[in-house]
């Protein structure tokens, strides 16, 4: 079993796919709802305190906005823990999304710098692309240590 970071971290579909192939998904475990009645699209379920942006200083300098550092306080340790990553770019909001594009840039950069195996895919826009999309993820996850359908 490998620890696989998923991006967008809020994608329940990616989280489910990773778990189906016997790995541990590292993400936010947040569902994106059809209606948004919270402060942000990826609002955290628990109150984050002003301490989180300070902890985030490990991943981003003080001139980086506090919202980025607060997110990095959560995702930074997960990236450090990750043994592989699946990244889906240009995703539809409903597939899963992160509220802050600047954090996205830093997360993707950190993952690419980490040296772990990474599968990067564009979000599919047709049925055919969708089939190839799932097949590529399946192949990647199966190839990871102890990977296989659960």
């Amino acid at each position: 079993m490998a620890k696989v970071f998923i991006y967008p971290a809020t994608s329940l579909i990616l989280s489910d796919l990773v778990a189906r192939f016997n790995h541990k998904p590292l993400g936010a475990a947040l569902g994106i709802r059809e209606r948004i009645q919270t402060a942000g699209i990826d609002s955290p379920p628990l109150q984050i305190t002003p301490e989180e942006p300070k902890r985030g200083l490990k991943y981003a300098a003080v001139e980086v906005p506090s919202g980025v550092r607060g997110r990095m306080a959560i995702y930074g340790p997960l990236i450090e823990e990750a043994e592989a990553a699946v990244i889906v770019t240009d995703a539809d909001l409903a597939f899963g999304c992160m509220g802050c594009a600047r954090t996205d840039e830093l997360i993707l950069f950190s993952l690419r710098q980490s040296g772990i195996p990474i599968l990067e895919l564009k979000y599919p826009t047709s049925d055919e692309e969708g089939i190839r999309f799932v097949a590529a993820i399946k192949k990647f996850l199966t190839g990871l240590p102890d990977g296989g359908e659960a």
Binding site: P44, I74, G99
Partner: peptide
């Protein structure tokens, strides 16, 4: 009405 980006992850929503 609050229109915002980042207050929760900055820890200042409260």
């Amino acid at each position: 009405a609050q229109l915002s980006c980042g207050p929760e992850y900055s820890g200042v929503q409260k």
